[in-house]
């Protein structure tokens, strides 16, 4: 069985908030150079979910596919160091507007280049743009079923079954392979790269494509446009409650909240 995991490289989304700002002329978010790159959070959980299947089903190959402007090999190889087998990179200098549907079309064309597969696993959304479109869009473009935001994944013969969190509990749904599954962080901790994994990853040579190598990719217009990017207005008007010590502050807080009829 072959599983394709899509992985996006992003600036560490948990870097201090002060390292992110907006360039309103360029209509994009600017990140301080000190912020390290990372594999988008939910994509590492997608890799984890794929590797759990690999642990269980002998002969499973996990192929990682990433589309990006400036891949840092040590970063984007993390899923390989975790245990995935091969790496495909599509390099494109024109992703700035982040049109998710166009990205889904490019990934779909790359997947056609990659050959046979049984399952595609994506993070439920990227950690920088948070759109949550690519996985579902990919399935629709490839004409295969999609199940999203998995918090549990089970392979059952040629069906993939997942649990997904809904408002009032958990829905269990299943799709026949080939299918796309998007994964949420609730599936549980993503494994660390082992020393052996890191050594093995060093030896893996990525297959690198540019958009012109993707023969299945048709020219298309943009599906959305970025009109503006801005920081929301925020003004802090916190009232600090300060007693003689922490316990005293706690008492004063209780009195204050009662006074204000908040509790």
């Amino acid at each position: 069985m072959r599983i394709i995991v899509t992985a996006k490289q992003v600036p560490d989304p948990e870097a201090p908030q002060s390292s992110f700002s907006v360039d309103s002329n360029a209509k994009k978010v600017v990140v301080a150079a000190s912020v390290p790159q990372a594999v988008s959070d939910y994509d590492t959980y997608a890799a984890e979910a794929a590797l759990r299947i690999k642990d269980e089903v002998e002969g499973t190959t996990v192929s990682v596919l990433s589309l990006g402007e400036d891949h840092v090999l040590d970063v984007i190889k993390r899923p390989i160091a975790m245990g995935a087998d091969e790496l495909f990179l599509v390099q494109d200098q024109d992703l700035a507007n982040g049109d998710a549907m166009a990205i889904a079309h490019t990934l779909a064309a790359a997947i056609k280049n990659m050959g046979e597969f049984d399952l595609i696993m994506c993070g439920r959304q990227s950690a920088d743009l948070d759109q949550g479109i690519v996985g579902t869009g990919l399935a629709a473009i490839l004409g295969i079923p999609v199940l999203t935001s998995a918090v549990g994944v089970r392979l059952k013969d040629d069906w993939i079954e997942i649990d997904r969190a809904v408002e009032d509990g958990i829905d269990t749904v299943a799709a026949q392979l080939p299918a796309v599954v998007t994964v949420s962080s609730e599936i549980g901790e993503a494994r660390y790269a082992t020393m052996r994994g890191i050594m093995a990853a060093r030896k893996v040579q990525p297959t690198i494509w540019s958009k012109s190598d993707l023969t299945a990719l048709e020219d298309s217009d943009d599906f959305t446009s970025v009109v503006d990017v801005f920081a929301p207005e925020s003004e802090s008007n916190v009232e600090m409650i300060e007693g003689d010590d922490a316990a005293d502050s706690g008492r004063l807080l209780a009195q204050k909240l009662r006074e204000e009829r908040l509790i």
Binding site: P13, Q17, F20, V22, K27, V29, A127, D128, L129, D130, D221, D222, F223, T224, S225, V226, V227, D228, V229, F230, A231, P232
Partner: peptide
């Protein structure tokens, strides 16, 4: 955008 730090106004060509 960015986990809620910023806002983006999106337009629609279609």
């Amino acid at each position: 955008l960015s986990g809620g730090l910023f806002r983006q106004k999106t337009g629609f060509p279609k």
